[in-house]
């Protein structure tokens, strides 16, 4: 990755924010409206259809809570990786990033067990529009988790060699955002019954 000759443009910083971080902030801004679209649609339907409560009560609050716990913890790992990167400690940053990745993998594992269980009970994507929203919203979030894991793995392997440590913070921002989306998905899909 580092062999790519970077243009001078990339090294400039008229705003004082590094280009990578600035781009991630814009990425987060554009993600807010993507999640806003699906969650806004869901909330409107949910309020307009009180009868969906009978479907919502079949979601597994404990699985949701466990996943919230996992993601919050992985967010802590991401911020500790950032702290290590600030101290130019690439090895430590990589270690915390790997822990973050572990958190993401645990999240996906819990999610897949939970979904398998629900599908076995007949709650599929098409069984009811509540479940359509449930799988779509959590699915879009899950895709973000997977993409984050891949990017983090690349950054961690670079960081271990001390390359591009400033990226640790950028991917951390993205990961915290994914965490925040889950913080809102949790009450929307699991608690509100």
């Amino acid at each position: 990755m580092s062999s790519f000759p970077r243009p001078i443009a990339t090294t400039r910083s008229a705003t004082g924010i590094s280009t990578g971080k600035l781009a991630v902030w814009w990425l987060i801004a554009s993600e807010i409206v993507i999640f806003g679209g699906v969650l806004g649609s869901y909330v409107m339907h949910r309020i307009g259809h009180p009868e969906w409560a009978s479907q919502a009560e079949h979601t597994n609050t404990w699985a949701g809570a466990l996943n919230t716990f996992i993601l919050l913890t992985s967010s802590l790992m991401a911020v500790l990786a950032h702290q290590a990167a600030e101290h130019k400690d690439g090895k430590k940053a990589a270690k915390f990033l790997y822990l973050t990745i572990l958190g993401g993998l645990m999240f996906l594992t819990v999610k897949s067990i939970e979904w398998t269980n629900e599908i076995h009970h007949g709650f599929t994507l098409t069984s009811h529009t509540f479940w359509s929203f449930y799988y779509t919203a959590a699915g879009i979030h899950g895709v973000h988790v997977i993409v984050g894991l891949i990017i983090m793995a690349i950054i961690a392997s670079d960081a271990k060699k001390g390359i591009d440590l400033q990226r640790v913070e950028a991917v951390g921002l993205y990961w915290h955002f994914v965490d925040i989306v889950w913080i809102f998905l949790f009450p929307l899909l699991y608690i509100a019954k």
Binding site: M1, R6, T10, T11, S13, G20, Q166, R167
Partner: peptide
């Protein structure tokens, strides 16, 4: 994400 190391002070 091809960000380079920014000038040290930033």
């Amino acid at each position: 994400m091809s960000d380079t190391s920014t000038p040290a002070p930033a």
